[in-house]
Design a protein around this nucleic acid. Sequence first.
DNA 1: CCAAAAGTGTTAGGAGTACACCCATGA
DNA 2: TCATGGGTGTACTCCTAACACTTTTGG
Lengths: 246, 246
Amino acid sequence: MDKQLIPNVSVDSVVFGFDSVHQNVLLIGRNTLYEGTWHHDWKFPGDLVRWDEDLDTASKRILKELTGLQDIYMKQLKAFGSLDRLTRRPQDISWLISIDHPEKRVITIPYYALINLSKNGKKNIELSINARWINVDDVSGLPLAFDHQEIFKFALETLRNELRTKPLAFELLPSKFSLSQLQKIYEVIFGISLDKRNFRKKISNLNYIVALDEKETGVLHRPARLYMFSREIYQKLKTENFDFTI
Amino acid sequence: MDKQLIPNVSVDSVVFGFDSVHQNVLLIGRNTLYEGTWHHDWKFPGDLVRWDEDLDTASKRILKELTGLQDIYMKQLKAFGSLDRLTRRPQDISWLISIDHPEKRVITIPYYALINLSKNGKKNIELSINARWINVDDVSGLPLAFDHQEIFKFALETLRNELRTKPLAFELLPSKFSLSQLQKIYEVIFGISLDKRNFRKKISNLNYIVALDEKETGVLHRPARLYMFSREIYQKLKTENFDFTI
DNA sequence: CCAAAAGTGTTAGGAGTACACCCATGA
DNA sequence: TCATGGGTGTACTCCTAACACTTTTGG
């Protein structure tokens, strides 16, 4: 095995992709030969960390290598290090042998990432390898490798928590956006529907969301006014508790 | 070095101790010989993980070995794995050499723990090794080893977040407690003061905090009514968002 | 002129906040 | 009877929630 790699520490990426209608997650399809038959399942993109890179750097590098994605919001979830996390499912053991992986025990440090698919082009990303965007509602019905189902559950909870308490929605929007786009993010990720008037009333109290003198173009309906998120104003007001409980 | 230990993965414990007046954290004093003079600093209790134990198990074992504490609430924070985390301060390098530690790069996985000092006896815990309870407000003025200042900051933020959104306060209370005791926890940990009447009004809406037909005894004032936390009722209502924004 | 989404105000109920006095007990 | 913390109610303000029609644009 490559000597530049730490043999027992990996990172995985749970990449959430938002396409203005659904919330998806990026999974890599995998075929494993086990007891003479092929098994198909899914895993999150991930790999071993190098000796000469930080964990945050590793997560970015590996995501880029495996999917071509870069310059997107990424945040560490926590470490997963159960004794049997690689060996619970016999087909995973077969797979580890097939890729000549020597370690019985690898601790993985998953990250979650956010990406706007309408902005970045869903297909460009799927081109690389056998990655697919899967609707988050369908993930619990799929066979996932190792402890990736557990990691997924933790990632989804964390995403929702952070979205409610931090200005994370703007990572999923272009720098100029309409209030309907913003509202849609909360609706899709929390799986709820919100009242337009009440939502706007709430937003108008947040003075770090600033109205621009610009409108949408090229839409076949009344064009919406555009807004931007001012990180400077947000930082100043940050001491007040932000709570996006909508 | 002990072959049972994973050489590059450790756990640390940020133990918060609440003594009904202050919030403290458990630190281990350390003297390091560096360039001919002794340097004194502090670190969180921690050690390497064994090959044959889960991370959660390791954190409990090591905390018990180093402080005698057991059966307390512990939760993982996240992994810290900067390239230079062991080597930023020259005296840390000296110390690693002195304890014959071979690895240049160790990823640490800190946990935070909660303990009620009035219940458990502050002194019993300090007896072991050179551990001390330090008021959390004083920690940022102390020299801490490695990246432990950064870990501490993260732990304190996480504690406050969890306390606001999860029924964590009850980990710091006996099973039967008065409302003043409960109020005190929020006051000390958030460093604020709360109105008694408004606090009680809020509590009375939470029906998983159930009034008992019992009173304090042995106090030299009017005895307070006792309450208990019902985890069953809490679990049922859990879907409603809990927010202890006081 | 039609389709499609943008934009806008009012009211009623509930939650949060500020505030001061009497009560029960042990010493 | 005194010291100590326990226990209680009201009024005001602010936030939340429910709800429907007009406006602007491109086709």
